[in-house]
Design a protein around this nucleic acid. Structure first.
Lengths: 131, 131
DNA sequence: TTAATTGCAAACTCTTTGCAGATAA
DNA sequence: TTATCTGCAAAGAGTTTGCAATTAA
């Protein structure tokens, strides 16, 4: 496997990843493409994503819930997740960047582009919905 | 499952975790205990660790290479996980606290006590093991 | 042409579950 | 006593691999 071919399946997978930026499981991509490509197989999705990772178009990470794939150019995006009401609040990248930069200044190159912090929103704190 | 019993197996598992502090896979604990408890089963190790997590003695995380279990020490502790070599590097709480404090200053109370950031250690960056 | 890719099915690893007997409280 | 726990085996997820047919370059 030295040369990489841009097959119909891989084009479709890339298109689909552009349509849904951010981390995605192989099966999520597969499920959505399956509608228009009923003969597509999940192993092709896995192999294509690894192939796309080889040529630097896709990143692969295991963030603790199975492999997730992401287009290399996706914008960093972060969230605060409320354990009380399950609200998902945006966390501005500008707020995260200095923290990441500080860590990177000592040699560790951070790949995390989707940070999730868990806790309690102000409404749930007032309701006493924490610890 | 409302009450938790401190069985022989769970005592041994706790002892073993005290002997090897830090993140451990269930199978690693199982393999070591198997020597002196040949009848021990891996499912008992998994269930005991989940039981110990229920009563707050053990934490469970998935750092990208399967579940790992760790004795709880009340201190928040954070890690940098290398996607290249799976090294787990400590991230000092003092470095994380100001970032958390800043977010909390706007009303969101963070409950996350074990932050994991994924990326590439300096050795893997040199090897080109990223992107 | 021909090495890379595909779909399918089966294999593999890690984790969970059902069950009947054993045991801590 | 009795709800919880155990070992075993089997089931489940998620991911990978072998194979013969297909296809991009």
């Amino acid at each position: 496997m030295n040369k990489h071919r841009m097959t119909f399946q891989r084009k479709k997978i890339l298109d689909e990843m552009r349509r849904y930026p951010g981390h995605q499981a192989a099966e999520a991509i597969y499920d959505r493409l399956k509608a228009e490509m009923p003969e597509l197989s999940l192993s092709t999705v896995y192999r294509s994503l690894k192939g796309l990772a080889d040529i630097g178009q896709v990143s692969i990470s295991d963030l603790g819930d199975g492999l997730v794939f992401e287009l290399i150019n996706s914008e960093p995006h972060h969230h605060l997740v409320c354990l009380g009401c399950h609200a998902v609040l945006p966390l501005d990248n500008a707020e995260v960047t200095p923290f990441f930069k500080q860590i990177e200044s000592r040699g560790f190159k951070i790949a995390t582009t989707h940070l999730c912090l868990y806790g309690y929103c102000s409404a749930c704190q007032e309701k006493g919905l924490f610890q």
